[in-house]
Design a binder for these strands. Structure first.
Length: 649
DNA sequence: GTAGGGTTAG
């Protein structure tokens, strides 16, 4: 090796006078220059970090060029990331910046690839990845997680599997937690849960994120037992994991289990945030009891969340109070919310609709469209339901006709179901049938079900047969549809047809859903009554109370609606069956226990029958009590002998 | 840089 001194022949150094050569440039050691450059880099990177607009970024970019740092991968990587974050199309500005860098490292390549991953097209990201590999640049773990994330966003499992193959062939990255976790997420978001599970099972090291991704995947697929099994096996659970499981129960209509798990979460001193709260609030909404409503309100405030200052928590509370029968409190919260969004408005509109307050729902909708907030499909479901339940047929038709042209919401099968309901209820059964035939999308069970329900109200067994035929094809095992058809036949006295439907039900081995009602006693305990149930400890008192009431009602002219009994039995037996309906038993118990002057709230699993409806109207008059009944359709508020639904349900 | 969220009709 030739030494530098020999090569340059500098054994004899010329005697340079520092005076002549360094007068304007003071001597700065290299290490100090390096340090200065480092400071400059850090300074520009932090400036970039604070940029929230393209204009600001361009300004910093000019400084980067001025300082000669446009070849510095560290700074340019940050520049590319920020450009993509503020949404500047990656194929223009960012790509130019990238092209001008002569020596590119993995990070700068990855920043550009990420840009395409976020903005698309993903294929371009994959092409760049190949180019990078051809240039001999090795990927970093973030290169793969960005690519995998992109595959999950566009649900392209084929591409995802290609990336998976790359990860395996490059080697080493399969063990990277970030990469493996993103891979699980990619598979489950694409709907390949089993593949995600395989990745999970093959992982040597897992963290709470790996577990949670999979738990959520099981929750979304409705497989709660697999989710719970994983959750139980998770060694260290954090707030997100707990929340995933609590909300999993809530989303799958298992509110009691959601609340039990939440109590365990609290016992474990795990923090509660707004995401946890919405799940818990939604569970309480499903239970529909005032007891739970006040409990969760307290829980929220203890965790520092006020329904009026947090839009997500607030909207959940609006929905919950409406579902618990307290639409006044729902509106009180809604009114005081400092920020509202489409969820808040939709929840309130649907809440009003559920309680038969059609004009309030419509007024609120009109108020909403004057704001910046755009109505969505759920908002229109609420508005159309409100019109339908209040018999506002013309207004409903108008909203339906303009929802696409004025608000850009394309009517889907759910909206058609509302319209069939609206036309059907107002007696235009043929018009409803025509609407179904003209639908641009395939009608689902809800659409035919709405027609069948209307046939019950207007006693039309012929159209009911048409609706039922399609309905039985779509939902062959749904017992409610058979019962509805059988009841329509029964009201028309067509007992042979009733027998035929019942035979089908028996042959299919379908079991009838027993009717049951809940009422909250003054002790806060929820009492459940089944139809004809005499097992309650205070059964004889309940029966006596009911008989006293019946006497008074009869005196006022109440005549039992015997046609509400769909059995071919004598009138005396029909009377006995009617008096043992679960909501009547629950109401009678309420009279015995709920403080006088307070309203009585009953939750029923099936639709209230005509006789019970009439009975409750009279009972609210005779007893002076407000009676609120939530059936599986909506709320009925009985007061002074009338119901909020105007006998239209 | 990877995991958890609220409104829906018969």
């Amino acid at each position: 090796m030739v030494s530098v001194s020999k090569k340059l022949n500098i054994t004899k150094l010329p005697s340079l006078s520092p005076k002549t050569h360094f007068t304007t440039q003071p001597f700065i050691p290299f290490s100090q220059l390096q340090q200065q450059r480092k400071h400059l880099e850090t300074d520009l990177v932090s400036k970039l970090d604070n940029c929230r607009s393209f204009t600001r970024i361009k300004r910093v970019h000019a400084q980067i060029i001025l300082n000669g740092l446009d070849q510095c991968c560290y700074v340019v990587t940050k520049l590319l990331r920020m450009l993509s974050n503020v949404g500047v199309p990656v194929n223009s500005y960012a790509h130019n910046v990238f092209d001008r860098v002569s020596h590119r490292n993995s990070f700068i390549w990855t920043a550009l690839i990420r840009g395409y991953c976020v903005q698309g097209p993903v294929n371009e990201a994959v092409r760049l990845y190949s180019l990078m590999r051809m240039e001999g640049i090795g990927p970093v773990s973030f290169t793969f997680s960005a690519l995998l994330k992109a595959c999950s966003v566009c649900e392209d499992v084929g591409l995802g599997m290609q990336i998976h193959g790359q990860i395996v062939s490059v080697g080493g990255f399969g063990c990277d937690l970030f990469v493996a976790n993103t891979m699980i997420d990619m598979y489950v978001k694409c709907g390949f849960l089993e593949c995600g599970r395989r990745v999970f099972d093959e992982m040597v090291v897992r963290d709470v994120i790996s577990w949670t991704s999979l738990i959520v995947a099981y929750v979304k697929s409705g497989d709660l037992s697999s989710a719970a099994e994983l959750f139980d096996g998770l060694p260290v659970k954090d707030m997100v994991a707990w929340t995933a499981m609590v909300n999993g129960y809530a989303q799958n209509a298992r509110p009691r289990e959601a609340l039990n798990l939440f109590k365990r979460m609290q016992d474990g001193d795990v923090e509660t945030d707004e995401v946890t709260l919405v799940g818990v609030i939604s569970a309480c909404a499903q239970l529909g009891a005032a007891k739970y409503a006040s409990w969760v309100r307290k829980v929220a405030e203890e965790s520092g969340y006020r329904p009026t200052s947090n839009v997500v928590v607030g909207s959940a509370f609006v929905d919950m109070y409406a579902k618990c029968g307290n639409v006044e409190e729902a509106y009180r919260i809604f009114e005081r919310m400092s920020v509202r969004n489409v969820y808040s408005y939709s929840s309130m509109i649907v809440g009003f609709a559920m309680h038969g307050h059609a004009s309030e729902a419509i007024n609120l909708f009109e108020e909403m469209v004057k704001t910046e907030i755009k109505p969505n499909r759920v908002t229109f479901v609420g508005v159309l339901t409100a019109c339908s339940h209040a018999g506002l047929a013309e207004q409903g038709e108008r909203y339906f006709a303009t929802m696409q042209s004025c608000y850009g919401v394309v009517p889907d099968a759910d909206h058609y179901a509302c319209m069939v309901d609206l036309r059907g209820r107002s007696g235009r059964l043929e018009g409803a049938l025509q609407l179904i035939k003209s639908m641009p999308v395939k009608p689902h069970g809800g659409v035919w079900g709405a027609l069948l329900g209307a046939c019950r109200i207007h006693a039309d067994p012929d159209i009911a047969e048409i609706a039922a035929k399609s309905l039985f094809e779509l939902e062959p095992d749904s017992i409610g549809n058979y019962i509805l058809l059988s009841n329509i036949y029964a009201s028309a006295g067509r007992w042979e047809d009733v027998a035929r439907v019942r035979k089908t039900v028996r042959m299919k081995g379908l079991k009838k859903n027993p009717a049951c009602s809940f009422v909250e006693g003054k002790d806060g305990v929820i009492h459940e009554f089944l139809a004809g149930d005499l097992t309650h400890p205070r059964s004889s008192q309940i029966k006596q109370e009911l008989e006293n009431l019946l006497e008074k009602l009869k005196f006022l002219g109440y005549q039992p609606v015997l046609s509400s009994v769909p059995y071919d039995v004598d009138d005396k037996e029909k009377m006995r069956i009617l008096m043992a309906h679960s909501e009547k038993l629950a109401f009678s118990y309420g009279l015995l226990t709920v403080a006088s002057g307070s309203s009585i709230t009953i939750v029923k699993n099936l639709r209230i029958c005509e006789d019970c409806h009439l009975f409750m109207c009279g009972a609210s008059w005779v007893t002076g009590r407000k009676i609120i009944i939530r059936d599986n359709m909506r709320f009925h508020h009985f007061h002074d002998g009338a119901c909020s639904c105007n006998n239209f349900w």
